[in-house]
Each structure stands twice: as structure tokens, then as C-alpha cells.
Simulated scan of single mutants.
Amino acid sequence: MEALRPKGAPDAGLSKSALYRAARAGEYDRIARGIYRPADAPAADWDWIEAAARRADATICLTSALAIHDLTDTIPDTLDVAIPRGARIPATQAAISWHLFAKETFDLGRTQIPIPGAELQIGLYSPQRCIVDAFRLRGDVGHDLGREALQEWLRRGGKPAQLIAIAARLPRAKGPILQALELLA
């Protein structure tokens, strides 16, 4: 079911006050400030719903995306979400780490995926983009994350040329990727 916001309540046949009463009565779950979902809706990740409801261009990145692609054993304690640099970082109740990525390269390796159990979609970076970002931002995410993900990706048959093509388009990425590939070869 779609996340419902008070301003969209009339589209669902409710007034704002009726939505609030329904939420108090247990007919709607309050996901976050201003975001509600029917209580009988299928199970869904509320953090994903909040990120997608707050920013249509929200894109799962870094450790969170590597975990989705099963390229790391690290369990992220927050949802890593990228938005274009210059955008306002939304206030959220969920455990979301917002990252600002350059507008010119924001869509590189980005796809939209449906949020399971919801009618919303959220962006997700490709495994190759996530590995390159882990090397590029190794000072923030740690040096081991990128190496671990790269080793697993290569073990599954990943092609180094794909990584180098993406790394060449992102700042501070090509050198560390080439060094890591050299060491692993």
C-alpha cells in the first residue's frame, strides 16, 4: 500500500483530521512524522518508505547497497542514502545516513527498485558503483569495506573493466581501484 501523507488524505477519501483519528484508532501506522500506512498493509521496511517518501531521488548506496547485493558481511546500523549535492537533507526519524553525491554523476549506475510490501520505489546503485564508491570514500566507510566487496564481486565473476569504466567517471576512484585490482591479481 502507498504511504499516505496528510496533504494526500483527501485523495484517499479522508480529511486530515479523519486520518489522525484513524491513526489513533489503530487503522493506520505512523511510520514517521507526516507519513502513515494502513495497519493491514503488507510488511515493509519503514526506513526505505520514509527515505522514498521524503526524497523521490533517494538512492540506497555504500554499505547498505553492498549488503543488498550480498557483497559484504557488514550489517549497516543506518540506511545509507544518497541524494544530489545541493539538495536539502530531510529531517527523518528513521536511522538514515544521508550522503551528498555530485549531480553530474548521481545517476551513474542508478536504478529504481520497488520497495517490497509498498507501492513506492527507491533508487539503488549497482554493485560496481557501490564498490567504486567504497574505495572513493574509504576515509568515511573504512578501507576494508571496498576490498571485501571487490573480492566477493570478482569471485562471482565480475569483470574489472566494468569497475574501471565507472571509476574513470568518478573523482578519486580510478587510482585506488587499479591498485586493489593489481594486488588481487
Rank of each mutant, 00 (worst) to 15 (best):
A87P: 04
I60P: 04
T59H: 01
D80P: 05
A53D: 08
W46N: 09
G86W: 13
D57Q: 13
D80A: 02
D47I: 02
H69F: 11
T63M: 11
A58H: 04
H69I: 05
L71D: 03
T63F: 07
I68M: 12
D80T: 11
A44S: 06
A87Q: 09
P84V: 13
R54Q: 01
L66F: 08
L71K: 04
S64A: 14
T78Q: 15
W46Y: 00
I83H: 04
T63K: 06
H69L: 09
I68W: 11
A67C: 08
A87F: 13
C61W: 01
R54N: 02
D47S: 13
A58L: 11
H69T: 06
D77S: 15
V81P: 05
D80M: 08
V81N: 10
L62V: 01
A53V: 00
I68D: 07
T72R: 03
D45P: 00
T59E: 08
A82M: 10
R85C: 14
I83L: 14
D47M: 00
V81R: 02
T78H: 15
A53R: 08
T59L: 10
A67Q: 11
D47R: 10
T74M: 11
A53M: 11
D45I: 00
A65W: 02
C61F: 03
S64H: 04
D80K: 03
H69C: 06
D73M: 15
L66N: 05
L66M: 14
I83W: 06
A82G: 13
D57A: 08
P76Q: 07
D73L: 13
E50W: 11
P76A: 05
C61T: 10
A67N: 00
I75E: 15
I75M: 12
A58Y: 08
A52V: 13
P84W: 11
S64Y: 05
D77R: 13
D70H: 12
I83N: 06
P84C: 09
I68N: 03
R85V: 13
R54K: 08
L66R: 02
A56Q: 07
A51M: 07
A65Q: 06
T72P: 08
H69W: 14
T74R: 10
C61S: 15
A58W: 05
D73S: 15
